[in-house]
Design a protein around this nucleic acid. Structure first.
Length: 217
DNA sequence: ACCCAGGGTCATA
DNA sequence: TATGACCATGGG
């Protein structure tokens, strides 16, 4: 199969425009995992408040989260929205994480086995799993989100209703499997779409305007 | 007042 | 397998 160089070219343009993004925000792999679960369909600014609550209470570790009462945990998570559901999901994740032996044990697993384990947790879907794969375990695994489909369908590189797995397969097929590249690329897509790709008038500022049909309309 | 956010699960057809 | 309802806060 022939590689479509535009996947690399779009990255080059985004990087030239926005520079290094220093993702994922978080001091430890575990903090990255917590953030990945809490940011589901939620603005990051609200996730920061919930993580700050956990830090303030000295509860940002898997054992403390497993040991905490549901109502108390939900209260700490409250600013991030969906707090009842996220309290359950975060606890589910921590139960699994401790059960399988924590970070060091998981580092020994190959990519496919690790991803299956992550997906086995109720509350962890493909995007959350890949956030953790890439940003907590530094595996070369591309993270797909709604922005990715929106931008790349506009660029004519995929259909808008394409499945998660098909999008990921395209990125894996058309790029070198490098952690640093995948790390920056996903972050750049989010940054780009938050800034200028969300609404049509803002597309005047779009660095991809020469390639983007929405910006030209 | 309305829309959306760095999704995922579950019930229904 | 494919939609739809639901979860809930905060900012534009």
């Amino acid at each position: 199969m022939k590689r479509n160089l535009r996947f690399q070219q779009v990255y080059n343009e985004l990087f030239a425009a926005y520079g290094k993004q220093y993702w994922w925000p978080g001091e430890t792999p575990f903090e990255v995992m917590v953030g990945a679960i809490l940011t589901q369909n939620t603005a990051w600014i609200n996730v920061e408040k919930a993580i700050a609550n956990l830090k303030q209470a000295d509860q940002l570790d898997p054992q403390s989260i497993v040991d905490s009462e549901h109502d108390q945990l939900a209260l700490w998570l409250q600013p991030s929205g969906y707090f009842n559901i996220k309290a359950k999901r975060l606890r589910n994740y921590c139960l699994w994480y401790l059960d399988v032996g924590g970070y060091a044990s998981l580092c020994n697993l190959d990519d496919t086995t690790l991803r299956k384990g992550l997906l086995s947790v109720n509350g962890v879907g493909p995007e959350t799993a890949d956030d953790i794969m890439l940003y907590a375990f530094e595996r070369p695994w591309f993270v797909v989100d709604a922005y990715t489909k929106r931008l790349f369908s506009r660029l004519g590189l995929m259909e808008e209703d394409i499945s998660y797995q098909e999008v990921q397969d395209l990125f894996h097929a058309h790029l070198n499997a490098e952690v640093a590249l995948f790390n920056e690329y996903h972050a750049l897509i989010v940054m780009h779409c938050k800034d200028v790709c969300r609404k049509k008038p803002l597309c005047q500022q779009c660095v991809l305007r020469e390639r983007c049909p929405v910006a030209q309309a």
